[in-house]
Design a protein around this nucleic acid. Structure first.
Lengths: 213, 213
DNA sequence: AACCACTATTGGCAGAGTGCCAGTAAGCGT
DNA sequence: ACGCTTACTGGCACTCTGCCAATAGTGGTT
């Protein structure tokens, strides 16, 4: 029982390093189970530290969760951006290519993407809502650019693209989660839907301007 | 200070009546603030009862919340069903009429609808997920019927309609929440989007069947 | 009108979880 | 080797939930 000269009881890490490690652990747990059923002590133990340290780094549990979601939400976007950057630079990628790239990224990070957009159903919380909304808005901007609609970037265009975003998320769920669509079928829908609407609906919508109550 | 013959300290209500009352109070609070920040004691006090009673009726806080969301999610659906039932019975309402009815109902229950679709606090809670998913699936079925697609009710049709559901929710947000669209503009989009996709995309999607990896 | 039985309702206790902070010790610089 | 910075621990205080035994409205019965 007499501890005959044990080494250090714990190792001391670089600030950012430890932070990253806890964040990664939290990410794993939060993508597996809902927020409420994951306790801070569980995260701490899984990361091999104490609960106190977790609070030292992230303040509150909620704030740690936000950090995680932010990461989850950004990774696909960044993934696509990188993919686009890696594409032949002679011109901006075509719409079809962008869709394909996006689908590949999402397919790879399946779990992450699913929890990220479901965290969106956490709309009740303001901070959370902002994170997701901003991410979607950024994606919309990207889409507008790829479609070459930058010149006429009206509220109507943004709204329509956001609408397409909702469509895309749902179609992706049909493909990855409910599995009622194959990847190829989902691709056809995603590629075709938006241009069709831009051509046939956008003019009508714009013509209805200022006619509100 | 000596209580000179006070009346009953509390009134005893019918089981369902009290239940309804608590539910209504909870509904008010949950539509105003996120799940985590509303405590059971707050609900109880606002309803003029004790926390114990709340648990007596609903078991757990979560279960009470589910009850509330179920209500919120059903009310628009029921509203539309009633509206359809009230319509001239000579034939099933046309697509445009259904959309108009739906928009009116949602406009009336603005707050309720907005919290309902963004409910789910902990993102991936199973029970919550099921409630919302089932409601959306029911709506999809309704849409399929109105569009007269009952004969060919394939997985592809369901998936496409669900996709449209995502589109519709987002467009409605653009109209009621972010206010980038007028009601009329939103109407044009909602009415036009789905038929267009059914005509132009559905055939392609069906032709791609069985081509998955 | 007094009583009784039924159950809606209360009040408080036990356990879980979060937030916080004062103290402890790892390990780098000198 | 020694001290100084600060990463890290351990435990206390508080809030909140879940539960249950005791209490008291109230309608029905005589």
């Amino acid at each position: 029982m007499t501890e005959t000269k044990t080494g250090p009881r714990w190792s001391r890490l670089e600030h950012d390093e430890r932070r990253e490690q806890i964040l990664a652990t939290a990410r794993t747990l939060f993508t597996q189970r809902p927020y409420g059923s994951v306790s801070t002590i569980e995260i701490a133990e899984a990361a091999g530290v104490t609960r106190g340290l977790l609070h030292h780094y992230f303040g509150t549990k909620r704030s740690l969760y936000l950090e995680v979601v932010k990461e989850l939400v950004d990774s696909p976007v960044l993934g696509v951006l990188n993919a686009i950057a890696a594409a032949p630079v002679d011109e901006t990628p075509r719409w079809e290519d962008s869709v394909a790239m996006w689908m590949d990224v999402v397919e790879t990070n399946r779990e992450a993407w699913l929890t990220a957009i479901s965290a969106g159903e956490t709309g009740s919380d303001r901070a959370m809502h902002d994170i997701l909304d901003e991410a979607r808005e950024r994606t919309a901007t990207q889409v507008i650019t790829v479609l070459g609609l930058d010149e006429k970037r009206t509220p109507e265009v943004r709204a329509l693209v956001r609408g397409f975003g909702g469509f895309a998320e749902e179609i992706t769920r049909e493909w990855l989660q409910r599995r009622r669509l194959t990847k190829e079928q989902a691709r056809v829908l995603l590629v075709g839907a938006l241009p069709g609407m831009v051509d046939k609906l956008l003019p009508d919508v714009v013509s209805k301007r200022r006619r509100s109550a």
